[in-house]
Each structure stands twice: as structure tokens, then as C-alpha cells.
Write a protein that binds this DNA or RNA. Sequence first.
DNA 1: GACAAATTAGAAGAGATGTTCTAGTATATC
DNA 2: GATATACTAGAACATCTCTTCTAATTTGTC
Lengths: 193, 193
Amino acid sequence: MGRSAKYTAEQFVDAALELVADRGPSAVTISAVAGKLRAPVGSVYHRFTSRDVLLAKLWLRTVRSFQLGFLDALRRGDGLEAALYTLQWVRAHPKEGKLLLLYRREELVSGPWPQEIQSVAADLTAELDSAIKDFTQHLFAEVSKETLLRTVFALVDVPYAAVRRSLLAGESPPIELDDLVSTTYQSILGSLP
Amino acid sequence: MGRSAKYTAEQFVDAALELVADRGPSAVTISAVAGKLRAPVGSVYHRFTSRDVLLAKLWLRTVRSFQLGFLDALRRGDGLEAALYTLQWVRAHPKEGKLLLLYRREELVSGPWPQEIQSVAADLTAELDSAIKDFTQHLFAEVSKETLLRTVFALVDVPYAAVRRSLLAGESPPIELDDLVSTTYQSILGSLP
DNA sequence: GACAAATTAGAAGAGATGTTCTAGTATATC
DNA sequence: GATATACTAGAACATCTCTTCTAATTTGTC
């Protein structure tokens, strides 16, 4: 019933990803997104109620993709693998890496999100939080401000830092980083007191 | 000769800093900057040729402020102190910290910089690069891609990671981070092969 | 006190972007 | 094949922001 689609929602999100990764959030104008597919702007608005919603969906899709494998390793209790997973994922998904690690949600999306999107975002965040807490409990037999700081540092912040420089330079994170992240991980969470 | 100034260039740069730290780069509109001082937009343009130049000067002022102490420690050969200096500096300069560590130059300034500013930026970068190379040479007796990666990781990237989360949360980096950064530093650069 | 220069003052211009709106087009279903 | 409908198409509208421009004001100097 009705005309068949020439441009899908997915395609517009993909186009937005290209633009962010290549030229930053400000390059993601509706007309640029449409232009990538030689589509009219009207077709973008036929799929998304606003620019912010389009960008929010790109953001969530990317976070979900990353979080999948990260949580997997973490839930198996393999913290080191979780830390190294960040490097691998970025190597396998350079554009998404640039998006996720270089742009914060607030930069991408200006206004508040609609209900539907907000709840998905909350779910993802809750999922990550609880997995990290579980892992901390498993490791320290205690979840405190201090122990959490320590796991988050070794699990999230250091891998993030390791990868950041390469992404900014538009390069794939060199293999040598794996050793640095591993060494750091061991020194912070390896042999517990 | 001439009317005395009611608003100085410095004041506008300060206003811009407040705006970036509080509400991100996009909040730094000329009228917002002027509004902070209840000044007319014309007065901003009387001091700066464009918004980009204003932001570039804010950026350079901040980088210079940070780099001063960092290079000091590094030139003394005290790598650990340089790494920890990042945490201290951010605690002492929360707004500047947010600016320097959370926003990249490209996010802040859209176009290319005018000559005058470009050369200052080049000088600062060169100064940092050479200090890091010297330190690497001093430590490893060799400056290669691998050894540089290692020093930069322990000296710059890890402290950055340590501080980032707090800044995003609008808090001062907790004291416990010092230990984490120290431990990491020792494990990466402490006992060399 | 008159003049020149630096500065304030803010309205007006120019350009970009998000969003809406109206019209036209292709396709599934009857 | 007629019809309803999902979709394309892009012009038009509304804002927002940077920048420019003209006029008024203050202050140092002769």
C-alpha cells in the first residue's frame, strides 16, 4: 500500500555517521545528510521528526554496538578482555569509534530527547552500570566509591585514552597499545591487596 | 587620546571561558559573550576580528597556562610529577580544565586561524613535542615510534583519562586518582627493560 | 573649549540551517 | 485499471548567528 521507499531510515543514519566521522557534528546538517543520498530534505523529515532524533538514533545505535561485546567480556568476569575489547572494536569500526569516543551525547544532540529515545538510553546506561558494579563486587567483594573508581579507570578510562589519540589522527590504534593497556590493567586490578 | 575602554579584550575572553565551561562551545555566541558583560556586540568586534579569533585566543591562553608547569616538571626529568601535574592543574583551574581537556581546537574554532595566531600555536606545540622527545631520549636512550608511544601514554593520555570523567561530571578529580596515575606510571615507565 | 581618536551602542545586512508545506509520483490492493 | 497511500520533491518560511555599518559618546591633548 503506497509507494515503495527509495531511501530508508538506516541510510540516513549511515549518511549522518559518515558526516560526523569526517567533519564533526556541525557538518551533519539535514541538507548534507539528504545530499549524501541525493535525496530531498523532505524525505529525511518523513523518517525523523527532527535532526536531534536522527542524531540520537545514530548515537544509540553506536553505543549499543560497542556495549554488546564489552558487556559480554565483563559478564564473563574477564576484565582484561573487556579493556582490550575497546581497542579491537575501534579498529573494526573506525567511524563509529570516532563518533562514540570523540563526541559526547550533548555535543551531538542539543535539546532533550523524546520519551522513546530517553528510555532506550536509560536502559543502556543502566545495563553498563550494573555490569560494572557486578564486576567490581566480584573483584573486590565490595562496591564503594574507591573500588568503583578503580575498576572504571582500568576498564573504561584508560582504554578510552589509549584509543583517543589514534582516532584524532584518523589512524587505527597501533598494536603496541594493547600491551600498555594490559600492563596498566594488571597494575591497577591485577594483584589485589 | 580617545575614550577610555569600558570592556577589555581579557574580559571578553573570560566571558567566553565561562560560557564554554558551562554550556559547551555552541553557547559561545558573540551576543552571549557581550551579554555576560552587558556590552554591545560592536565592542566585541572592536577587540576581535571574528568569533574564531576570540576563541583561538582563549584556547592558546589556556594551553599556555597548562603547559607552563607541565614542561617545567618534564624538563627537570621528573616524569611522574609531570603526569600528576595534570591532575593538580585541573583541580586548580576547573573551567580551563574543562575547556582544554574536553574540547578540541577544531570543535571550538571552525575555520583556519590567522597567521599571527597560527605561529603562536605552532610554537607551543613544538615546545611540547621537543620536551617529550628529550624526556624519552633521557629515559630510553632512544626515540622511536614505540618509545614515544609509551611516554606519551603514561605522561599525557593516562592523566587525561583520569581527569576526564570528573570534568564531565563537573567535579574536582578525587585524590584517589593520584595513586592510580602513579601506579600506572610506574608500571609503564618505572622499571625499564 | 575645540578637536581627534578610541570606544560604545545597537540596528541592519547577509548567510545558513531546521522545519513546514504543498504538489506530484509510484505502488500495493481491490 | 481505479484508488488509496506511502513516499518523493523542493520551494518557502522562520530563526539564529556572525558580521558590518552608522551614529553617538567619552576622553586626552592642544
